[in-house]
Amino acid sequence: MKSPAFDYIRARSVAHALETYRSLDGEGVYLAGGHSVVPSLTLRLQAPAALIDLSGIDALTGISLDDGWLRIGAMTRHAEVAADPMIRDHAHLFHLAAPHVAHPAIRNRGTIGGSLSLADPASEFPAVALALRAEMEVAGHDGVRRVKADDFFLDIYETAMDPGEILQAILVPPVRAGDVAVFDELARRRGDYAMVGAAVQAMVDAGRVADISIAFFSVGNKPTRAGAAESALRGARLDDATIAAAQSALDADLDPSDEPQMPASVRRHLARVLLGRLLGHLGTTA
């Protein structure tokens, strides 16, 4: 469990990072908090010629409000995500999810940008980004572009970013009156990757679900919006019958794989249970 030798380059700016990446000709890997990259090196799953450290780039840090949109710099650590008052108020789902991500030591180093760039289907933050309908600010040689979360996560460890592109920030749309967020996951131990988890962002108006987005994680090869369940809920009153209908609709939304320790049927069952509980919770929170 010792990594092969590699060079370390500390990027001064986004432009410097992009240039360095290009000069390494596919042999460079970006380093943020390092809590996924470094284990992969010591497990010898990858052996890059150099790590390009993004953590000194000012443009990737900071949390700010701009025209109602919350901009969270990619280098924001998980611990800051949990503690920051602006995130608590303007991107509550991230606030709720952060304590479920790993353990304190890892949250002190791991970054939101690293988590979203890695796109681990078992991670909390990608699902939160989906449920919040957040947008990713991506920098490349041709400039900066914005990618909707729905279009960002493509497959296991695969995003809409081209090799070498840098995630600069996560942009969260303005909060609306009546917005409520609930988050939970079923994990065998606190801090583990979950067996099933879900993030729900809803707008509830006079007991009716005016709008809702539901994103599951640990249920397939990418974080997954539960579109059929959302449809069953949209416009409806949050009663037992509606919740049951949303739970049944999940079968159309989720297609988990069969694993010896977690057959697809069990994951579906757990997803239904979790959704039922979250919607019940939503009813009492709204």
Partner: peptide
Amino acid sequence: MTPLRILAALGHV
């Protein structure tokens, strides 16, 4: 006693 085994014992799976 994993969740899976308990669910199996309960007949959920």
